[in-house]
Design a protein around this nucleic acid. Structure first.
Length: 776
DNA sequence: CTCGTGTGCCTTTTT
DNA sequence: GGCACACGAG
């Protein structure tokens, strides 16, 4: 194999295959290349690929590693390169009966979890106001991460009423999960650990099999993941972990930075290798990153360096408000693009999703393609969750969360009263809702019409359950859509909203198609074949391993998928995402907006030293995403959650090395004595959009790079003036609204228009907020 | 039972 | 400002 691309430290990491190895890999230091070469090297040594386990946190990282390894060692199969959750899930699929689960168990995502806990609240008569759901869910999750079961929770609890509530919900939640034959994400890890801890023969099998264990992003492992890895690597002791304590940004989620800081104590005779040469960022960017992160205490000594040139200075821009900030960013993107960069070379990375809107508006206004990686995952949309719930029921009819989602969707006349009848019966006889519904006496409580519809629904499930072995996933899906009446109900609704849902349902169909045709790691048949091989090996060891079906495999894959996994680096669009989502990625030009106290760092952490350090690491992660050019911006006032607040500059700005920066100076407040925003006058054009100020140009920096909007495309300017003019309509005009569709203007004043929409009825629309077109 | 309107909430979120 | 959710009228 060719190792000539590797530097001496990387090479050392590749060759050190035996014993515990700690690779401290700074940002952009060629970590993935090192790991993939290491795997390839082990295989080249003649080791069985099946003896290799490489664990990551994201599907994306796993996929990347898999494909890069396959370039180095074509045709090699049998390694386990997957996320922690997928790893546990795979073992649990084979051995779930040892923990009391049934074959085909369901994995609940956060939405399912929330729905279930909500139901438990209702049952136990707790109010969400008094005991916020989010806090209860958080505490349950934290407990699970620490292996604290409901019983132990009780013993450790302070005895406060709040604790008792959480305890009661927690206990009930675990019971329900078990009854539904389901696990949540935390259970996957905990059950994975339990499986190995309680079953010495299982532990022996896997730990002996995995001669070489590797873990990526080790700084973000939590207690369970730590234990899991420790056990899996116990037989051979060849454990190689890669991480960067400066990039630990998930402590709030249970990640324990001590796992990496204490690794050398945990594993005596550890060989520690530092990858400190950064190949990603130009000198100024790296210098800035170092100037920020050095303010953290308690980090492993490490200094990133580069032999690249200093490059562009980092530009800081203090803007008047969030709209101007977005304009500024948009304009700089156009400016760079005119110099030959592509849209996909830019990323806008913010602290929280709520910051994305102004950027979306300005980008879309200027016709710049962009993609927001945030908010609702495709698979979290109501209609997608619904159709998935139908599919889930085919595999696991005990899944009450799925049942509750779809029993009355489409409407089958099963309301609160009927539901309560069904669930009470189910509870009394200790059965699932599906089982209860199968009882004639339960259905007898429904109205005649409703009874017939429910029976039709049950029959569909029974039929499809029988047929599922013989149908392709696509056919199964089509059958389900038609026979459930789900699609029909949406078609009948004939609203814009329903049309959107139908579109998503069809999109889901193409996801199924893609899955059947094959993904990056092979076709579905190859995957099932690999399962079968694993299973045979396990059977040979005396385990009774069940092979999961294609449907189960499909469903779990989607459940374990994250939004960032959808990021396609080849799509030519500006990317918008949170700083958390950006870890592991890189872009030629990065914008970091919202460097304001209360936004970044967030308001609640500013006087918590430990949390400030994590926040600072997040800042470090953001800076080190940039290869060529970094912009940092802030806004003097920002409207968020419907309120406009005055924003101080972020304390992180004070820590930065300003000799590496240009643009505005720190504390460059731009307010008039009266407290109002200073109109930068003269130079700046002011632009109106439906009577509101849209944007002013950069008049501050003394040497404006361009006249206002010169760098915006001609079509953007045209659209702008059109948008302005188009707000003047006359009564009787037929108008088109992007959301509500066509309608007739029946009244207006200077601020609003009253429109009678064909499908949405009469609405009052504020002028200048959305694009309204005249069509007749 | 379903639809409509009103109230409260609002970090970050690998899986 | 927007959305999800709870509650009240038909």
């Amino acid at each position: 194999m060719d190792y000539s691309n590797l530097n001496s430290e990387q090479l050392k990491a590749v060759m050190q295959t035996e014993g515990p190895v700690l690779i401290l890999a700074g940002a952009g230091s060629g970590k993935t290349a090192t790991m993939t070469h290491r795997i390839a090297h082990i295989i080249e040594q003649g080791e069985d690929p099946r003896s290799i386990l490489a664990v990551t946190f994201t599907n994306k990282a796993a996929g990347e590693m898999r494909s890069r390894v396959s370039v180095l060692t074509p045709g090699i199969r049998g390694m386990w390169i997957m996320t922690f959750h997928a790893l546990c899930l795979r073992m649990l699929r084979f051995h779930c009966e040892l923990l009391g689960y049934k074959e085909g168990f369901t994995v609940y995502d956060e939405t399912d979890k929330k729905a279930l806990i909500k139901r438990i609240y209702k049952d136990l008569d707790y109010s969400e106001k008094e005991y916020p759901l989010a806090s209860t869910i958080g505490r349950i999750s934290k407990s699970k991460e620490q292996e604290i079961d409901p019983e132990e929770f009780l013993m450790q609890s302070s005895g406060w009423h709040d604790d008792k509530v959480v305890q009661a919900v927690y206990e009930r939640y675990q019971e329900e999960l078990m009854a539904n034959n389901a696990m949540d994400f935390d259970d996957l890890l905990w059950n994975g650990v339990k499986l190995l801890e309680n079953n010495p023969n299982v532990l022996r099998y896997y730990s002996e099999r995995f001669k070489y264990v590797m873990v990526d992003e080790y700084q973000d492992t939590n207690y369970l993941q730590y234990k899991l890895i420790r056990m899996l690597a116990s037989a051979h002791g060849n454990l190689c972990v890669v991480g960067d304590d400066d990039q630990c940004i998930y402590e709030w989620r249970g990640a324990d930075i001590r796992n990496i800081l204490d690794f050398e104590n945990d594993y005596p005779d550890t060989v520690t290798i530092r990858l400190e040469q950064n190949y990603r960022s130009d000198g100024n960017i790296l210098g800035l990153a170092n100037s920020v992160i050095r303010n953290n205490k308690g980090r492993k000594s490490k200094s990133l360096w580069t032999d690249r040139e200093a490059g562009e200075p980092v530009t800081y821009k203090r803007c008047d408000d969030e709209k101007l900030e977005a304009w500024y960013v948009t304009r700089e993107i156009e400016e760079w693009r005119s110099k030959g960069l592509d849209y996909k070379d830019f990323a806008i990375l913010y602290r929280k999703n709520a910051l994305s809107r102004p950027f979306e508006e300005k980008l879309s206004f200027c016709g710049i393609p962009y993609r927001v990686l945030a908010g609702l995952r495709f698979y979290d949309r109501k209609e997608v969750k619904d159709v998935m719930s139908y599919l889930r029921l085919l595999e696991n009819p005990d899944d009450d969360v799925a049942m509750l989602r779809v029993i009355n969707e489409p409407k089958r006349g099963v309301g609160a009263k009927s539901l309560s009848n069904i669930t009470q019966y189910a509870k009394a006889y200790n059965m699932s809702m599906y089982a209860a519904l199968c009882e004639e006496e339960v259905r007898a409580t429904l109205t005649k019409k409703s009874k017939a519809e429910v029976e039709n629904f049950l029959e569909m499930i029974a039929d499809l359950r029988r047929e599922k072995e013989n149908l392709t996933l696509g056919d199964l899906y089509d059958n389900m859509l038609n026979r459930s009446g789900y699609l029909n109900a949406l078609e009948k609704a004939n609203t814009i909203e329903a049309d959107g849902r139908i579109e998503n349902i069809m999109e889901f169909k193409s996801v199924i198609g893609a899955f059947e045709k094959g993904l990056d790691d092979g076709t579905i048949d190859e995957m099932l074949e690999e399962f079968e091989e694993e299973r045979r090996a396990l059977l040979g060891e005396g385990f009774r391993a069940e092979e999961p079906s294609a449907l189960v495999t499909f469903l779990e894959r989607i459940t374990l998928m994250a939004e960032v996994d959808n990021h396609d680096a080849n799509e030519n669009a500006v990317v918008l995402m949170t700083l958390h989502g950006a870890k592991g990625l890189e872009f030629p030009v990065v914008f970091m907006p919202g460097l304001e106290a209360g936004v970044f760092p967030g308001a609640s952490v500013i006087d918590d030293a430990a949390k400030m350090e994590e926040e600072r690491r997040l800042c470090y992660v953001g800076i080190t995403r940039a290869k060529k050019k970094l912009y940092i911006t802030s806004a003097s006032t920002r409207m968020m959650y419907g309120r406009t607040d005055y924003q101080m500059e972020s304390p992180f700005l004070e820590e930065m090395d300003w000799s590496l920066m240009d643009g505005d100076k720190l504390n460059s407040e731009r307010r008039t004595a009266g407290g109002g925003l200073r109109d930068e006058g003269g130079l700046l054009g002011e632009y109106f959009f439906g009577g509101r100020t849209l944007g002013t140009a950069d008049g501050y920096s003394g040497q404006p790079k361009s006249r206002p909007f010169d760098s915006l495309s001609a079509s953007a300017r045209e659209t702008e003036s059109k948008a302005h003019l188009s707000q003047n309509f006359e009564i009787g005009d037929t108008l088109k609204h992007p959301k509500f569709g066509e309608g007739l203007l029946i009244a207006q004043d200077d601020k609003t228009m009253t429109i009678m929409f064909d499908s949405a009825g009469q609405k009052k629309i504020g002028k200048g907020y959305v694009k309204i077109e005249k069509i007749g």
